[in-house]
């Protein structure tokens, strides 16, 4: 059974009086433990797909099944609980909380969502910060680290709740190419280590090399699907 299944999903935004079709009857599936990329120009529908999978938004029509749950039917509270248990997010602008240290930013989802013992919490955060290479920066604040480092912290934060899926919307858009490639490599390593399904979007074709499945989008439709051999 696929981890993610979109069936005839249509999403229309109302911009004033003008309806804008962001996704036009798209359907696809994503299997567990894969590293998937959505590529396409701005406005092609990449972020909309990620928002729908992440239950941050609802489709105008069609079904969005994630981990056997039709997320389009969830109310606000259940959608939040679903996200907390199933999905991790990495954002284009990192979205770290400025008053919290690196360690505290990673700890934040655990404080707000999951009640786990302090010792286990500490161990999990340390382990993740080590894996993303940020353990030495744990006491630094977001304004004391670089963009690439911020995104590594964001990856650790996304993984700290042990989600099945990590959604990264343009995670490299604010990074230089070298750093962007490093971030994607770390994401891929994390995907292999934790068996998490990573889905990221980008408009930069140079950094999608790491992805196992690449969907190319144009005007709200999937125009190409490239599947690479694992390994």
């Amino acid at each position: 059974m696929s981890l993610i299944k979109l069936e005839n999903v249509k999403k229309i935004y109302q911009t004033g009086e003008i309806p804008v079709t962001a996704l036009n009857e798209i359907s696809f599936t994503i299997e567990r433990q894969t590293f998937v990329s959505f590529i396409g120009p701005s406005g092609s529908g990449k972020s909309t797909i990620l928002n729908l999978i992440g239950s941050l938004d609802k489709p105008t029509s069609g079904n969005v099944i994630v981990d056997n749950v039709n997320v389009a039917t969830l109310d606000r509270s259940n959608a939040a609980m679903f996200r907390g248990s199933t999905i991790g997010f990495v954002f284009q602008n990192f979205n770290l909380i400025p008053v919290l240290s690196v360690y505290e930013n990673v700890e934040y989802p655990l404080l707000l969502i999951k009640q786990i013992p302090v010792s286990e919490r500490r161990e999990r955060i340390h382990s993740l910060l080590e894996k993303v290479g940020m353990i030495d920066y744990r006491n630094k604040y977001p304004n004391q680290i670089s963009g690439g480092q911020k995104q590594r912290v964001a990856i650790a934060r996304a993984l700290v709740t042990n989600p099945k899926i990590v959604l990264a919307d343009e995670p490299t858009a604010n990074l230089d190419h070298k750093t962007a490639f490093k971030v994607i490599t770390i994401m891929h390593e994390m995907q292999k280590t934790f068996g998490t399904t990573f889905i990221f979007s980008t408009h930069d074709p140079k950094i999608v090399g790491e992805a196992e499945i690449i969907y190319t989008l144009e005007d709200g439709a999937i125009v190409n699907q490239e599947i690479k051999q694992k390994g």
């Binding site: 939040a80 934040y108 989802p109 707000l112 969502i113």
Partner: peptide
């Protein structure tokens, strides 16, 4: 606002 979006996205319930 953006931070509220972030904490909501990572799974914080509205009541929380």
């Amino acid at each position: 606002i953006s931070e509220i979006g972030t904490i909501a996205a990572i799974g914080t319930r509205p009541s929380r």
